[in-house]
Structures are given as C-alpha cells and as structure tokens.
Design a protein around this nucleic acid. Structure first.
Length: 341
DNA sequence: AATTCGTTCAACCGCTTACAA
DNA sequence: CTTGTAAGCGGTTGAACGAAT
C-alpha cells in the first residue's frame, strides 16, 4: 500500500500545539469552504501545517459538535460495553457516542477505565476476570469493600460461572457440560431463524470447580454442560468476554447501589457470533447470536443517542447504543439457553 | 518554596485502507 | 493487476499541570 503523505515530511511546516490564531484560520476556512481536501487545505487557509495536522485539529478539537468535559457515567458504561464488543476500535466506539472523538475516548480508556478495570481484577483487553490473580474469586465475592474502597461490582456467582467455563477450555477432558434437551423458547420480532433451548442437567462439577481458584463454593452445585463441540466453540482462546464492570455507583454516597442488569452479563464475541452469559435470580443463561455480516460491516456513525436508562437491557444488541439497523443485523439465528440453578 | 512524581490529553507517527490512474 | 496518494486509524509521546513530599 501507499506511503504516508509526503506533506508530513516537508520541512518548514509547523508542529506542536496550535495557537488560537491558527485555530481561527482553520475554523474560518472550513466554515466558508468545507474540508474536502486536507492536502490542499493548509495552503488555501494560510496555515503552515500539514493537512494531516489540520484534519486532526479539526476533528479532535475544533469541530463545533464536540462535547467537551467529563464523561458521564452513562457514557463510561457505554464505552465499556462497546469496547467489549469492538475492542480498540476507537473510531467505531466514538461513532456511537455523539460529540466524543476517538482520541478522547482512547485517552479516557487508557487513563481511567483501564486502570479501574485492572483495579477490579478485570483484564481490560478480554473483559474477563484475571484468573492469574490469586484469590480473584474471593476478591469478587467478598462482602467487604476492596482495596479501592469500592464494593464488589459484579455478580460473584456469574464470575465464578464464567471463570469455570474459561478454565475448562484448557482441559478438554473437563467436558462437564452436557446438553440435555431442546425446545423453542424464544421468538424475537426480528426474525429469529432458529431457536434452541438447552436445559442443563444438574451435574457433578467437582472437577471443573476445583480447577478454578476460589470456586469451591460451587461444589455440588448444578453446573451447566455443553457438548464437547459447543464447549470448544465457546472457549476459543480468542473469545472476548465481557465481565461488565460497572454498576449503579452513586457518586454522592460513593456506594454501589445495586446490580445493574448489565452487570450480570458476560458477552463473548467470536468471529461472527456473540455469546452472552447472563444471570437472573436463579438461572444463568447462555445466549448465542449470529452476526450474518462481520462486525466491521456494522454501520458507522450513528446519531442514535446513548441509552440513559439504567434499566435498559445490557444485551448489547438490545440496547439503544447500537442502532436499530445494527440491532436487526445482530439478532441471531440461534438461541441457546443453559439453565443453571 | 523547590522538587519529584503521577496524570491528562493534544498532537504526532507510522501503518492500513480505499480508491483512482 | 500494480502503483501512488489521500484519508483514516490506533499506538505512542511529551508538555502541561496538579498533588505529594
């Protein structure tokens, strides 16, 4: 492919912070002429900058529709959810957060959210509990505040469950998951093509649980079971799983109020599939979605607002973070349910 | 008051992608 | 099909700032 633009290598062009005079020149020029050609823009606008620098300055700072200031809690939550699906696709994430730039989100992720997740024992890359940490499970299940003064924010049972599933991937002999039955259970208005319900038997999952640090409390519980094939599918190493990490955090009282519904989900993305392990009062549910087109084909800039409703479903596909079109694309051809009680 | 350390974020750099010739 | 160019993207850097010592 081609090299980077030669304009960046030209000598005599100014680098570094922009002055207000330069800003005014750029704003004035774009307001009158638009920004069709960044290469020729600097010369036409009377700026001693390369087009790349002008573009960046406009997009990240001068654009009139930029929302500046602190990220709201809803925005932060949206970033985490979107990152769990899209990874470091900052521009794709920014496209779903009106008024925020990719650069701003990237910075915010690297300086705040990433540290927060690490502090809570969550791998910010995979969004899974960091199993390398000793006693991570007890960390989550502790009724006390952790070292950061924040109460555990995730459903500890869900964490254990996800940790169990994760751990089983390393040992094919630990196929404790057993498919028990099927039935149609779910019919979504968006043309679900194939529904599947798998009731999971109560099984002795000692081996599985013992393989997970801190999961002893699940001994004798009724662990779910997948077929070997399905288990292997779910446990692909490249699966991204979201241990959705934020909750109702009352900034005034500095207390965790309750589980967000969002917090009871792990979301796994694998190729064109998304798997969500969710939890309600008595059941864990594994939901599997097919994405006919790859994620990269999901629409770009959407003006759909970020959900402001804390009660909205955490299912990424079902939230308003993703546009109706995308939602339609995302809805699945198959639906698995694994009960865990 | 001076220095050190940590954090933030604007800007840069290098690479990839898209597209036209 | 190949090549060159512009635009876009993500990782990284470093100046500025505030807090801690």
């Amino acid at each position: 492919m081609g090299r980077s633009p030669a304009c960046c290598e030209k000598k005599g062009l100014k680098k570094g912070p922009w002055t207000s005079e330069e800003d005014q020149k750029l704003i004035h020029y774009i307001q009158n002429n638009g920004y069709g050609n960044w290469r020729t823009l600097p010369g036409n606008a009377g700026l001693q900058r390369c087009g790349k620098s002008c573009r960046l300055r406009w997009i990240n700072y001068l654009r009139p529709d930029i929302k500046r200031g602190r990220f709201s809690f809803e925005e932060e939550e949206a970033i985490i959810q979107l990152h769990s699906v899209l990874g470091n696709k900052w521009s794709a994430i920014a496209a779903r957060l009106p008024g925020r730039t990719d650069n701003e989100i990237k910075n915010y992720w690297n300086t705040r959210i990433r540290k927060k997740l690490l502090g809570m024992g969550i791998d910010p890359v995979t969004h899974t509990p960091r199993l390398d940490l000793q006693g991570v499970s007890s960390f989550y299940s502790s009724p006390h505040k952790n070292m950061f003064g924040i109460q555990p924010v995730m459903n500890p049972e869900l964490l254990r469950f996800a940790a169990s599933l994760l751990s089983s991937q390393h040992d094919p002999n630990r196929n404790l998951l057993h498919q028990n039955g099927q039935e149609n259970l779910f019919e979504h208005p968006h043309q679900v093509q194939e529904n599947r319900l798998v009731q999971l038997q109560n099984q002795d999952n000692q081996n599985l649980i013992q393989g997970v640090p801190g999961c002893a409390s699940l001994n004798n519980s009724n662990c779910v079971s997948l077929s070997a094939n399905e288990s292997a599918q779910l446990m692909e190493p490249n699966v991204h799983q979201l241990a959705s990490s934020f909750c109702h955090f009352d900034q005034e009282t500095c207390q965790i109020n309750d589980w967000l519904y969002d917090l009871d989900n792990f979301i796994a993305n694998e190729g064109n599939q998304q798997k969500i392990i969710s939890h309600d009062d008595s059941n864990f549910t594994l939901t599997e979605f097919d994405f006919p087109p790859p994620l990269s084909n999901l629409s770009t800039p959407s003006s759909s607002p970020v959900s402001q409703n804390p009660n909205s479903s955490s299912c990424i596909n079902g939230s308003s973070i993703i546009s109706e079109d995308e939602r339609e694309i995302s809805y699945c051809s198959s639906f698995f349910k694994y009960d865990y009680q």
